[in-house]
């Protein structure tokens, strides 16, 4: 298969039915994409194929032939990607971190100023067991609006103080 992976043209000699997830992890050494369930339920293996978020555990290599693929390792190539990554660190969107690459990649196609409902819908196929999702929503909201104000980490959490809530 030939694909543009994180901006680089790659020619790979793989079985056409090999899962894209395994092609990325084993043949390209891009282990940032994770496997959580292997059946398209958890979204840990989310990558962008031609700009669309897909579960790479369900995509055979042949189907990604000729496509542009973005994995977590390529997210930082765009400023918006770096802002999302930074927000996930600063606002607690990443805890154990295993769902984080998929979450960030799934949020990448969102437009700046996306509503909470749009964010929830974009992330609907991604499971997290640590956070209860609220800090992930806050991270995505802030990451999509990368002003200095939005990324101040102490803004939202104060002990026994009123705080804004995702709703």
């Amino acid at each position: 298969m030939i694909a543009i992976i994180n901006g680089k043209r790659r020619k790979l000699d793989v079985h056409p039915m090999k899962r894209l997830l395994d092609v990325l992890r084993e043949d390209c050494g891009l282990t940032g994409t994770k496997e959580g369930c292997g059946e398209g339920e958890c979204g840990a293996c989310t990558v962008l194929v031609d700009g669309v978020a897909v579960d790479s555990c369900l995509v055979p290599a042949a189907q990604a032939d000729g496509c542009a693929i973005v994995t977590i390792e390529g997210v930082a190539r765009a400023r918006s990607g770096r802002a999302l990554q930074d927000a996930f660190v600063k606002l607690g969107g990443a805890q154990c971190g295993i769902c984080t690459p998929g979450m960030i990649v799934a949020a990448l196609p969102l437009k700046a100023g996306a509503s909470l409902d749009e964010i929830k819908t974009a992330l609907a196929g991604n499971l997290c067991r640590c956070t209860g999702y609220l800090s992930i929503f806050r991270s995505v909201q802030a990451g999509l609006r990368p002003s200095r104000e939005a990324l101040r980490p102490t803004r939202k959490t104060r002990v026994k103080g009123k705080r804004a809530n995702a709703r």
Binding site: R25, T31, E35, A76, Q85, F88, V89, K90, G97, P101
Partner: peptide, 21 residues
């Protein structure tokens, strides 16, 4: 204080190594 978590950057860039990696 909400200091920056030590493992944060490795986790958001895909650099953190889990057992299957």
């Amino acid at each position: 204080a909400n200091v920056r978590r030590k493992d944060g950057d490795a986790k958001v860039t895909g650099a953190a190594k889990y057992i299957d990696d």
